[in-house]
Design a protein around this nucleic acid. Structure first.
Length: 672
DNA sequence: GGCAATCGCGCCCTCTGCTGGACTGTT
DNA sequence: AAACAGTCCAGCAGAGGGCGCGATTGCC
């Protein structure tokens, strides 16, 4: 069944052509253009869509819109209505609204008979003329159909649709199959070719009449009328142009007059037909059923701001806006919260405050998770955490942020700005949170600590406790072997605790006698007593020794002329001893001089020790209290500075253990 | 035209978590 | 003394809460 071609291409209602916009962009002030850009960018198609040709890419059912590389072109979505009718259902009427972002792409909205189910088709590389006359089959497959529940969608609403594309890809595909792909192409073509019958039922004569009233001569500046059929109700949408007269401030009123005239014309006709009118702004997506609202709206496209603040000279469009503004100067807050002491300038602020603090009503819910927010902007910001969108780019590095504040905060890393200063030590920080932690940890008394649930470790910061848990208490798949025994562990903390049990045990046992020691090197020296090995030879007299230290003692005593032995005098009788132990032993029985105390070994040691922090002292205190188990090396290990370093000046070799024989030899030599 | 509701953007804040260098104790 | 490991600490970014304020719009 064929469809009559009823409308000429000129009759396709062109709300705003690219060329017109570009001209307007030149004529309008920068703010207007930028505002349009913002509106478009906020629709979510692409942030920079107004700067380049939007291109639709069909990637496995997903819709991707990307700006082309063409620069310095301002492409703004244009709307075109296409009048056609299907022939399959005879008088079934369908509407097709084509949104043409650029030459390369079409966005069409098809509306079904019921008016409830619409179809948004994004089509690539079809120019207007081609679409109107003949659409190639292959291009149809490049279309993406988006199921729409409500009429013509605003660009803002398209943002939501874009998000839903991924989720509903299957459904969309089916819709596409049903409504687009499966439809005979020729039928579609015929539909579009149906030029004589506008699908909205607008008589061509009406449009022509309106055009004549406005002295519009061609499609560049038209008044476009189309109607929608919805459940028997006939609604007329009047698309009003925003010509240059409206945009010029002094012509606003005349423009409004024109609008009134136009609407009046339409109204009369509407009345005669029992239709409901809708006024549609050509500059933006605004529609209204009230002419007063429409007229007021048109003022938003002007710069008229007659109400000026006498305090800061800022101008406002309405008295209400001015009053609210002045209240910010005076501190007047008429809207007081009944549940707390907060007060606000506007009712909206109060409502929002109550939602945040008292009612906890969160109307904006994320469809992907359980997040809900009080404000739409917060939901929009949240959704970026799902999409990964980062619209705010750093101009100095590759960083991009999801909101403006994070970018601003990030910029401090480039500027070196540290706006937060510790009031105690005046240290500066880039973030307030960092400073807060600093003050808490460094300058507060009751510092909160984080106790490890698995061990006695207490860590100042929670994040560090997390590292502690990860390093020490997490299960490791690979076995960790004890370095002293065959035991294996999967938790590092358990391994360390186990290895500590090996710390004081005499793990090295002599095969030839009962000697045992904690260190292998001690065993090496000990075994020389069985083998008779004496690897250290005096270069002056060729005498051999089992230990290097013995050789050094020998050399200093018999071959070093500058050697001055240290003598420990008895405080009672003045008798000299080479060893403090011997002197003390003597002194306990010496009654020559009374009343003098003998300094403790610890006291003498501390005199030699460098000034250290209390923590260090406490640790050494613990060392001092450790039981001495290996008596053969007690003097060397626990009092190394008492004898060897001072007397012989060879501290590095002191740790070699002494056998019973050699120790006695040294002691005898020294005490002689 | 006034008012209330709503929207949108900006700003600032807090909490959270990760990272890497510095410091310190142990081996 | 050096290597290693654990802890401390500042830097930095992610996510979200809350408010300020101008602008717009529906309704009366």
């Amino acid at each position: 069944m064929g469809t009559e071609a009823s409308a000429s291409p000129e009759q396709f209602t062109k709300i705003k052509g690219t060329d017109v916009i570009q001209e307007k962009a030149k004529e309008n002030d920068v703010d207007k253009v930028s505002k349009l850009k913002e509106r478009q960018s906020s629709c979510g198609l692409e942030v920079d869509c107004s700067y380049g040709v939007l291109q639709a890419k069909i990637v496995e059912g997903e819709l991707e819109l990307a700006p082309s590389n063409e620069e310095n072109e301002k492409h703004i979505l244009t709307l075109q209505t296409v009048h056609f009718a299907t022939d399959e259902t005879d008088h079934q009427e369908m509407s097709q609204l084509t949104v043409q972002p650029a030459e390369g792409m079409h966005v069409m909205v098809q509306q079904g008979e019921s008016g409830l189910q619409s179809l948004l088709v994004l089509q690539q590389d079809i120019n207007v003329q081609a679409e109107l006359n003949e659409i190639p089959h292959q291009n149809l497959h490049q279309c993406v159909a988006i199921s729409i529940q409500e009429e013509v969608f605003s660009l803002h609403e398209m943002e939501v649709m874009e998000i839903n594309v991924v989720e509903e890809s299957v459904e969309v595909s089916s819709e596409e199959d049903k409504l687009t792909v499966n439809s005979p192409l020729d039928e579609n073509t015929e539909l579009i070719k149906d030029k004589d019958k506008g699908i909205y039922g607008a008589e061509e004569g009406e449009v022509q009449q309106l055009c004549e009233e406005r002295e519009f001569t061609d499609q560049k500046e038209e008044i476009f009328t189309f109607e929608k059929l919805r459940e028997g109700e006939k609604e007329e949408i009047i698309l009003l142009p925003a010509n240059s007269e409206i945009e010029e401030h002094e012509d606003v009123h005349s423009s409004e007059q024109d609008i009134d005239e136009v609407s009046g014309t339409a109204k009369n006709q509407a009345k005669s037909k029992g239709m409901k009118r809708t006024f549609h702004c050509e500059i933006c997506i605004f529609t209204s059923s009230r002419i007063s609202s429409f007229n007021r709206h048109m003022k938003t496209h002007s710069d008229e701001k007659p109400h000026m603040c006498h305090l800061c000279l800022k101008a406002f469009r309405t008295v209400t806006l001015l009053r609210n503004h002045v209240n910010t100067h005076t501190g007047t807050r008429p809207y007081k919260c009944s549940d707390c002491d907060m007060a606000f300038v506007t009712s909206g602020e109060l409502v929002r405050h109550r939602r945040y603090k008292h009612t906890h009503e969160k109307p904006f819910k994320c469809s992907m998770c359980k997040y809900a927010s009080v404000e739409a902007s917060k939901l929009k910001r949240h959704i970026r955490s799902h999409t990964g969108e980062r619209p705010f780019h750093c101009c100095l590095c590759s960083y991009a942020s999801k909101d403006t504040y994070k970018l601003k905060r990030h910029m401090r890393t480039h500027s070196g700005e540290k706006p937060y200063e510790c009031y105690v030590c005046h240290a500066r920080f880039t973030q307030s949170g960092t400073m807060k932690i600093h003050i808490l940890q460094k300058h507060s008394e009751n510092v909160p600590k984080h106790q490890c649930p698995h061990c006695s470790t207490v860590i100042a910061r929670k994040s560090d406790l997390r590292v502690h848990l990860r390093n020490l208490h997490s299960y490791k798949a690979t076995e960790m072997k004890c370095r002293y025994c065959p035991a294996v562990f999967h938790e590092r903390y358990a391994l360390i605790q186990h290895q500590k049990t090996h710390r004081n045990e005499k793990r090295f046992k002599c095969d030839d006698c009962n000697y045992a020691c904690k260190q292998e090197r001690h065993m090496t020296v000990h075994k020389r007593t069985h083998t008779g090995e004496k690897p250290f030879t005096c270069l002056s007299c060729n005498k051999c020794f089992r230990q290097k230290q013995l050789l050094n003692v020998h050399f200093k005593k018999y071959h070093d002329k500058n050697f001055i032995p240290t003598v420990y005098e008895c405080p009672k009788c003045g008798k000299g001893f080479s060893r403090w132990n011997n002197m003390r032993k003597h002194s306990e029985h010496c009654e020559a001089v009374k009343g003098k105390s003998i300094p403790s070994a610890k006291g003498r040691k501390n005199k030699k020790k460098k000034q250290k922090d209390p923590k260090q002292d406490a640790k050494e205190e613990v060392v001092e209290q450790m039981p001495i188990e290996d008596t053969s090396i007690v003097n060397i290990e626990h009092h190394p500075n008492e004898i060897v370093p001072v007397v012989y000046g060879m501290a590095a070799d002191v740790e070699e253990p002494k056998t019973e024989v050699t120790c006695e030899m040294i002691l005898n030599m020294m005490d002689k």
